[in-house]
Design a protein around this nucleic acid. Sequence first.
DNA 1: GATGAATGAGCGTTCATTCAT
DNA 2: TATGAATGAACGCTCATTCAT
Lengths: 183, 183, 183, 183
Amino acid sequence: MAIKKTSKEEILNKAIMLFKTQGFSNTSMANIADECGLIKGSIYHHFKNKYEIGLEALKYISEYFDKNIFSIKDETLLTKEKLEKIVKKTDEYFLNSTGGCLLANLATEVSNQNEEYKAVIVKYFKTWEECLTKILQEKYTKKEAQNLAYEYICTLQGSIIMFNLTNDKAKLLIVGKNLLSKV
Amino acid sequence: MAIKKTSKEEILNKAIMLFKTQGFSNTSMANIADECGLIKGSIYHHFKNKYEIGLEALKYISEYFDKNIFSIKDETLLTKEKLEKIVKKTDEYFLNSTGGCLLANLATEVSNQNEEYKAVIVKYFKTWEECLTKILQEKYTKKEAQNLAYEYICTLQGSIIMFNLTNDKAKLLIVGKNLLSKV
Amino acid sequence: MAIKKTSKEEILNKAIMLFKTQGFSNTSMANIADECGLIKGSIYHHFKNKYEIGLEALKYISEYFDKNIFSIKDETLLTKEKLEKIVKKTDEYFLNSTGGCLLANLATEVSNQNEEYKAVIVKYFKTWEECLTKILQEKYTKKEAQNLAYEYICTLQGSIIMFNLTNDKAKLLIVGKNLLSKV
Amino acid sequence: MAIKKTSKEEILNKAIMLFKTQGFSNTSMANIADECGLIKGSIYHHFKNKYEIGLEALKYISEYFDKNIFSIKDETLLTKEKLEKIVKKTDEYFLNSTGGCLLANLATEVSNQNEEYKAVIVKYFKTWEECLTKILQEKYTKKEAQNLAYEYICTLQGSIIMFNLTNDKAKLLIVGKNLLSKV
DNA sequence: GATGAATGAGCGTTCATTCAT
DNA sequence: TATGAATGAACGCTCATTCAT
């Protein structure tokens, strides 16, 4: 069981890497199979089709953020500590992830044409915003907290695009520092 | 059978629209031709290949910003007036442009694999930053001006992604208002 | 009149050169037009279609041999002198003609599928054989003369193929020398 | 729908037949596939591209001659016996091979533009010449042997072109008989 | 005559997907 | 599960050809 699950997860991780660096449409089943040391037909033992790989990739990342980052909001820590922890983990994730944020990428590449993808992406950003809002509400009004949260996410997403072009890590880290300076 | 004249710019605009809403790789020559009322082979009368359409699309938008928006920095207006004019024109552009910012989209979709595309995109964002920096320097130190300019662009780009998902115009406009509140 | 005729002949000569160096199927109307400094549509003012260019090319060369080489058989010269003149002109033609003998090339490339082309080619070789036979009959029996003529043509054609591969002029010239040594 | 196993050699043989009778450029992947009862995309399971089919076709024939004909030079037979055996097998090959000699055909059709093809073709003819030279040296000086070998190959190649036009088997066989009469 | 824009068919190639082994 | 052979559709692109200007 454990082995099989790892196998599927391995394919998913390779696919995610390719989707982020080459784009979703620009990544073929053969590309994914190559990366996994398989032939393309074999991928279909793990996933129904390419569409499903894309969907599971989005969910996989979304769940990663839920479990490892957004959940921090419920830990028993000081406001600043929670925010620091979240910012640190978020920065780590995007600094080590060539090709940017898959959910943002697919938001522009395919979500216009696909409601199921779009739903996962919209929920991901909403959950993110709610997570930060909840913490910031400890120091700000709800409205203020929402605005700060939303602004942070937007700025970070824009910065990720720039990071992808320039590879300037310091500039990416500023976004989190700015948020932390507000609590 | 009926022969009708199609201008190069016409094709380019249709292509840009498709690239933004469907992604570059996901848009076929047949898609572009359909949109223009041509068959796909006819496109090659105007462009050498798909790659060139992509490149000219990026340059076309980049030049639009150069001529119509970034040039405002050199007009003889008050600091605030220049910034207002720029913000207004920028907001107008992105509010009426389904699918977001093509240069940001291609930055993630294909620029990893293509230096010529990447160069145009990098230059576009750099020129944008320099434009805003020049104006903000009238009220801030160079360093401060650069930071404000860069932050604005990042936040706007992130907001464009969100706008594309939610269609909430008000939230997009906030980014410009925030910038204006600083002069 | 004279100018127009030259124009058509010019296209034909460029086409022949391309057919010989690139093959007939591998040469496009655009290739021919490029070589003539025209756009491809313009070729159709001179020739009905590509097929006709091929046919006229074959006829053009065939007529060149008729007028300039095969006609020598009827001149009032000694046997050896006639043969020397023919060999000299034949060698000159093929030494200065990259890509070999168009009629032989098309014999293998397209004549299996095209009776009209094939007819011109068959007639060309037959006329050539008859020309040499007529001269050689002055010294040999008809049967012997025919054999010598046929063998010379075959050997020369094979040598042209080799010349095209090795560019060794001396080896090409041997074929004619051998023939001349027999009278 | 029905899946049937097609061997690589099967495809190669069909391709060779088409290349010889229609020319290389004039033979499409769809032609080859049709002949094999496949659709054109399926060919790519066996060959990387059309270029590779051409190359492997040339090598396949070249190796056939190496193994079955040129190797006879090393058998322990009388000079005349070896030559007879070679001539017999060579004649058999070309009598039953519509469309002539693929290596000679591609020598004129594409080798001007392709060094890799050209190398295989040049080597084929060189090996052939060396094979005959080795045997003829048993009765002639090296120089004489080379000349006889080269002349035989050229004459045979020219005769193959003529055979393709006239289908006169007797005339093709004369070339070998002439060679044999010299030992 | 030449041009430029168009066409429909076909090119070589790759796509996602299927399925017997 | 993995493989290898296949499929039909689509890809980007080029073909020979037409025709209004």
